[in-house]
Amino acid sequence: MSCPALIDFEASCLPEYGQSYPIEVAIARIDGESRAWLIRPLEAWRHWDWSEEAEKLHGISREMLRKEGLPAAQVLKEMARFVGDCEVYADADLDAYWLELLAHGLKAPVPFAVHFLGEYLVRHNFTRPQVVAALEEAKLRLPKEHLAREDAKRLALVVKLLLEGEKAS
């Protein structure tokens, strides 16, 4: 297993538009392995907000979650197994929030910490031009956005490209 791992969530709406809950999560490692899960909403979230605008962005409907979503407890367990000993990073604080909300809804401990990707980039002394170039290349290879499964893979590819460039120099 090649670390780190990158995580991305999609939600019922953005928090500034109401009380949102996680509906999809994906984790991608820099070795190219990735997993994505649709999350069947918890009963406690039944009356929380849903945004038609968000649904248009990520393409996930309530009906899809009802039919294809997995039980939240199963998702949390499988995520922890997939992450293993990897450090997990995200490009937004909201991803840590939604992981905490998921665990809290299940009355379970948060299975791993989610760190800000910027911390990783600074720790490895990547320059802004290096990061921008890696991000542009990753967007060319994986252009779909607002899908957790694609966003996590693209972030992992950015880190992989940066690390490969570091080795080459």
Score class of each variant (00 low, 15 high):
Ser61Lys: 07
Ala80Cys: 06
Glu119Asn: 14
Val25Ser: 02
Leu76Arg: 02
Leu142Val: 05
Asp151Gly: 00
Leu65Gly: 03
Arg128Leu: 11
Val132Trp: 11
Ser12Asp: 01
Leu161Ala: 07
Arg35Cys: 15
Lys77Leu: 07
Val122Trp: 12
Trp98Asp: 01
Leu6Cys: 15
Ala26Ile: 13
Val132Leu: 14
Glu164Gln: 10
Arg66Tyr: 10
Ser61Thr: 14
Val83Ile: 11
Val25Glu: 03
Val114Lys: 05
Phe82Tyr: 05
Glu43His: 09
Glu136Met: 05
Glu16Arg: 10
Val158Trp: 01
Glu52Asn: 08
Glu43Phe: 04
Val158Ser: 11
Ala90Gln: 12
Asp49Val: 14
Ala138Gly: 05
Arg81Thr: 13
Ala152Pro: 05
Lys167Phe: 07
Arg154Cys: 03
Leu101Arg: 13
Gly118Cys: 12
Asp95His: 03
Ile27Met: 12
Arg40Ala: 14
Leu14Lys: 09
Leu102Trp: 05
Glu150Cys: 14
Pro15Asp: 08
Glu119Val: 08
Ile23Val: 15
Asp8Arg: 09
His47Thr: 14
Ala11Leu: 02
Lys153Asp: 02
Leu70His: 10
Ile27Phe: 04
Glu10Asp: 07
Ala152Tyr: 04
Glu43Ser: 11
Arg66Lys: 08
Lys56Asn: 06
His58Val: 12
Arg29Asp: 06
Ile39Gln: 00
Arg66Pro: 02
Val158Asp: 11
Phe126Ser: 09
Ile23Cys: 02
Leu140Tyr: 10
Gly84Asn: 07
Ala156Tyr: 00
Gln74Lys: 15
His124Val: 04
Glu24Cys: 08
Met1Cys: 08
Leu140Glu: 15
Ala134Trp: 02
Gly32Cys: 09
Ala152Val: 13
Phe9Lys: 04
Ala28Lys: 05
Pro41Ala: 00
Arg66Met: 08
Pro111Glu: 06
Gly18Cys: 07
Ile30Asn: 07
Met79Asp: 03
Ala152Cys: 10
Glu55Tyr: 03
Ala108Thr: 13
Trp48Gln: 15
His146Gly: 04
Gly32Gln: 09
His104Cys: 10
Cys86Ala: 09
Asp95Tyr: 00
Val110Tyr: 02
Leu161Arg: 03
Pro143Ile: 07
Glu33Gln: 15
Val132Lys: 14
Cys3Arg: 05
Ala26Ser: 15
Leu70Lys: 14
Ala103Leu: 05
Ala108Asp: 12
Leu65Glu: 13
Ala44Tyr: 09
Glu100Val: 10
Asp85Asn: 12
Val114Ser: 04
Phe112Met: 09
Met64Val: 01
Leu106Asp: 08
His47Asp: 11
Lys56Cys: 05
Glu33Pro: 08
Leu76Cys: 10
Val132Glu: 15
Ala134Gln: 09
Arg128Pro: 06
Lys144Ile: 08
Ala96Gly: 04
Lys67Ile: 02
Gln19Ser: 14
Ala54Val: 00
Gly84Tyr: 04
Leu99Glu: 06
Val131Glu: 06
Glu16Met: 11
His124Ile: 03
Glu24Tyr: 08
Ile60Met: 02
Leu42Cys: 12
Glu87Thr: 13
Leu94Met: 09
Ala54Asp: 02
Met64His: 04
Leu157Trp: 01
Leu6Phe: 13
Tyr89Pro: 00
Leu121Val: 05
Arg29Met: 10
Lys153Pro: 00
Phe9Met: 06
Leu14Pro: 00
Gln19His: 12
Asp151Ser: 03
